[in-house]
Simulated scan of single mutants.
Amino acid sequence: MSDIILETRGLERRFEQGRGLFRTPTVIHAVNGVSLRIRRGETFAIVGESGCGKSTLARLLLRLIDPSAGEVIYDGTPLTDLSPAEMRAKRAEMQFIFQDPFSSLNPRMTVEAIIGEPLRVHTTLGTAQRRAKVADLMVRVGLRPEMADRFPHEFSGGQRQRISIARALASGPKLLIGDEPVSALDVSVQAQIVNLLEDLKAEFGLTLVVIAHDLAVIRHMSDRVAVMYLGEVVELAGTEALFTAPRHPYTQALLAAIPVPVPGGAKGRKVLGGDMPSPAAPPPGCLFSTRCPYATDICHSTRPTLSQGPHHVACHHWNDLPPPVLPLAVAGHRSAAAEARFALWRRATQNGTPSKETIK
């Protein structure tokens, strides 16, 4: 068995906008030439600004939308070659957690029906067996089985996300993809859901692919991180290597933007200016050249490719850049008191929301 569970090769997705009888449509390059290899059992994170193509890539990985070019290979099987019936059978092994835990649940269905639907579609279990399996899944994600006859609007945001996770686990998947699975939740609830995903990953032997904006969440739970910019991966590395020694100027700017709750902790950091170019009109050469303080003539004319090795970066000058000025927490220099508070908070969130006394 290969240690690569999911692979993409030159994956692209283009959308047409403004099509009309006398108008030429504008082509949006949402994902452009992405090649990734995700290892079995790891937590793989994809980060970047809003509009960089993260969510589109996540949907391409499960073929919720079809690619314009390239291919997705799951466990040795090219998904783009499968018929609709074959793809439906394969979906039992690949599940998705959507960003909004309310709109992704059918408001007319009870929790029992929502969680039990994958069992009805992908298994031959009888009604009583499905009901028992739903109750077991609810317990595993921290919900009481007697809530099974309630509707989604009767639950809090964190509880609804737990329902979404239980539904995703129902078919016994090997791969779980979460598109901003905690972004719509309160901070304390985010910690509970992150811990829940980690526990379930260990229990079920899952491979997780997580899309997120919160870099603290990413550092806490991921093994490797891919940084996307304007539809392309510009840096890919192990989590600690990327957070402590980022090589791409865009990654450095993302990490420098992390808020620092220490007086004077933000001094010396360079804040990224300007807006991301339109994906309908990407710049020639390096996509980041219009905002990069280190851009030269070659950056404006020649597109860089990802370097080889364990730390991949798409930048012409990454080896000549000055060392980044990162927040203290990112650089790994938390005080002993901060480390102690973090350890207490981590233990408290294992069994519920931490109290004010715990995190003082």
Score class of each variant (00 low, 15 high):
55 S>P: 05
55 S>G: 10
55 S>I: 12
55 S>T: 12
55 S>D: 12
56 T>F: 11
56 T>N: 11
56 T>K: 11
56 T>P: 09
56 T>A: 10
56 T>C: 10
57 L>T: 10
57 L>N: 10
57 L>G: 06
57 L>W: 10
58 A>M: 06
58 A>S: 09
58 A>K: 03
58 A>R: 01
59 R>I: 03
59 R>S: 02
59 R>E: 11
59 R>H: 08
59 R>K: 12
60 L>F: 06
60 L>A: 06
60 L>W: 04
60 L>V: 06
60 L>M: 09
61 L>G: 03
61 L>K: 03
61 L>W: 05
62 L>S: 02
62 L>H: 00
62 L>W: 00
62 L>V: 04
63 R>V: 01
63 R>K: 08
63 R>W: 01
64 L>A: 04
64 L>S: 02
64 L>D: 05
64 L>Y: 03
64 L>W: 02
64 L>H: 03
65 I>V: 07
65 I>W: 02
65 I>C: 07
66 D>K: 04
66 D>Q: 08
66 D>H: 07
66 D>R: 05
66 D>L: 06
66 D>E: 11
67 P>I: 04
67 P>V: 05
67 P>A: 07
67 P>Q: 04
67 P>N: 03
68 S>L: 07
68 S>M: 09
68 S>T: 11
68 S>K: 08
69 A>T: 08
69 A>G: 12
69 A>L: 12
70 G>A: 12
70 G>N: 11
70 G>W: 07
70 G>L: 09
70 G>V: 06
71 E>K: 08
71 E>G: 07
72 V>G: 02
72 V>D: 05
72 V>A: 08
72 V>K: 01
72 V>N: 04
72 V>C: 06
72 V>W: 05
73 I>A: 13
73 I>G: 09
73 I>N: 10
73 I>L: 12
74 Y>N: 07
74 Y>T: 06
74 Y>W: 11
74 Y>R: 07
74 Y>E: 08
75 D>S: 15
75 D>N: 15
75 D>M: 13
75 D>K: 13
75 D>F: 15
76 G>F: 15
76 G>W: 15
76 G>V: 15
76 G>A: 15
76 G>P: 14
76 G>S: 15
76 G>Q: 15
77 T>M: 13
77 T>F: 13
77 T>I: 13
77 T>Q: 14
77 T>A: 10
77 T>C: 13
77 T>K: 14
77 T>G: 09
77 T>V: 14
78 P>T: 13
78 P>I: 12
78 P>D: 14
78 P>R: 14
79 L>Q: 01
79 L>G: 03
79 L>R: 00
79 L>Y: 02
79 L>F: 04
80 T>K: 07
80 T>A: 08
80 T>G: 13
80 T>H: 09
80 T>D: 11
81 D>S: 15
81 D>T: 10
81 D>K: 12
81 D>E: 14
82 L>G: 01
82 L>A: 05
82 L>H: 06
82 L>S: 04
82 L>N: 04
83 S>C: 10
83 S>Q: 10
83 S>I: 09
83 S>M: 09
83 S>A: 12
83 S>T: 14
83 S>H: 12
83 S>P: 08
84 P>R: 01
84 P>A: 03
84 P>Y: 01
84 P>K: 01
84 P>S: 02
85 A>H: 05
85 A>P: 00
86 E>S: 06
86 E>W: 01
87 M>Y: 00
87 M>T: 01
88 R>S: 05
88 R>K: 09
88 R>A: 09
88 R>F: 02
88 R>D: 01
88 R>M: 08
